[in-house]
C-alpha cells in the first residue's frame, strides 16, 4: 500500500507567475547494495522516475538513482499561464506508479 504523497503548491496564481512546487513521497529507496542478516543482498527497490505534467504537457521529470535517500523530496518551479491540473507520478522499480493530482486556478 502506497502512502499519499505530500504536495505543496499555491491554490491560485497570477497568469505568468512562477510558482514553487514541493513534493515528498514515502518510499524505502532500497539501494540494492545492502545485505540482510543472512548475508543475502537486499534487492534494489527505488523510485526510478518522477514526472510532473500540467494539463497533459510535461513540466518536469527526473531519473532517480540508488544513492537518493528514503522518502525523496523534490522541489521545482513552474510558470502558470492557465488554470489546470498538475499530475504527479513516481515510478517504482517494480512497475507500480504512485500518482497524485493538484489543481491550480488563475487569480481573478
Amino acid at each position: 500500500m502506497a502512502d499519499k504523497p505530500r504536495i505543496k503548491l499555491p491554490k491560485e496564481a497570477a497568469k505568468g507567475e512562477v510558482i514553487q512546487i514541493k513534493t515528498l513521497v514515502s518510499h524505502v529507496m532500497e539501494s540494492g547494495q545492502r545485505k540482510d542478516a543472512q548475508g543475502k543482498a537486499i534487492p534494489r527497490k527505488i523510485i526510478n522516475k518522477f514526472a510532473c505534467e500540467f494539463n497533459g504537457k510535461p513540466v518536469f521529470s527526473c531519473a532517480l538513482e540508488p544513492a537518493i535517500s528514503a522518502n525523496p523530496y523534490i522541489q521545482f518551479d513552474a510558470r502558470i499561464d492557465e488554470a489546470g491540473t498538475f499530475k504527479f507520478s513516481w515510478t517504482d522499480d517494480d512497475g507500480t506508479v504512485i500518482t497524485a493530482e493538484e489543481k491550480i486556478a488563475l487569480k481573478a
Binding site: D3, K4, R6, K8, K22, L24, S26, N71, Y73
Partner: peptide
C-alpha cells in the same frame, strides 16, 4: 511541515 519526513508518519 512539508519537508519534514516525520509528517509522513503523522499522516499515515
Amino acid at each position: 511541515d512539508l519537508e519534514n519526513p516525520g509528517f509522513l508518519a503523522v499522516e499515515r
